[in-house]
């Protein structure tokens, strides 16, 4: 039995590289879709117009656009947790967590 040619990539290498490439491609797709604000607006507008038309409901473009803007403004937002559990977690982070893990800047 001869040794494998070291210059030829093994199956494992190929799979790893394919996996990385695949992840990069998926990430690029996600970023592309997320950053394509105008297409997203347009697609939403067309879909909603279709839905309203199917139900024989008249809706003016300004209302539709305002609703879409509100919806887009809500995406990728974050609301800090509230309640007892969150308060306890904050106490832990403030006083009990190792110093190097605490948020650097007091906000």
């Amino acid at each position: 039995m001869t040794d494998a040619d070291p210059s030829r990539p093994g199956l494992e290498d190929s799979l790893v590289v394919m996996d990385i490439a695949d992840r990069m491609r998926r990430r690029a797709d996600t970023l592309d879709r997320a950053s394509d604000y105008e297409s997203r607006r347009q697609a939403l507008r067309e879909r909603l117009e279709g839905l309203y038309a199917a139900q024989h409901i008249d809706i003016d473009t300004a209302t539709l656009d305002a609703a879409i803007e509100q919806h887009l403004a809500r995406r990728l937002t974050h609301r800090p947790a509230r309640g007892l559990a969150a308060a306890l977690a904050r106490l832990y982070v403030r006083w009990l967590a190792p110093r190097q893990d605490r948020p650097a800047v007091e906000r």
């Binding site: 950053s35 990728l76 969150a86 948020p103």
Partner: peptide, 24 residues
């Protein structure tokens, strides 16, 4: 798109970065 993305980042990053638990 870059103009929109920068505006969105500036408008929304604060909520994440001011949450102590998330930053932790």
């Amino acid at each position: 798109r870059l103009t929109d993305a920068r505006a969105e980042l500036e408008a929304k990053r604060g909520a994440f970065e001011q949450d102590r638990l998330f930053v932790y």
